[in-house]
Amino acid sequence: MILGPHVDFIVAAYAVTVFVVVALMAWVILDYLAQRRILGDLEERGVTRHSGRAGKVER
C-alpha cells in the first residue's frame, strides 16, 4: 500500500478518527464502571429504589 505524497494527511485523518472513537469508548466504559460502583455503594448502604411508594415511576 503506497500512500503517495499526501501520506501525512491520510494518517492524520485516520489518527483523529481513532482518537475520537477511542475517546467515545473510554467515556462509555468509564461511565459504566462509575455508575456501577455508585449503585453498588448505594445498595450496600441499604438504599433501594422501591421503598414506600409503590406507584413510583421508574426512571
Binding site: D31, L39, L42, S51
Partner: peptide, 20 residues
C-alpha cells in the same frame, strides 16, 4: 446501546439518592 445503559443506571443512581 452502551450509552443508553449508562444513562439508565445514572437515573437509577439519581432516584436512589433522592430517595435517600
Amino acid at each position: 446501546l452502551a450509552a443508553m445503559r449508562n444513562e439508565i443506571l445514572r437515573r437509577r443512581v439519581r432516584s436512589m439518592r433522592l430517595m435517600q
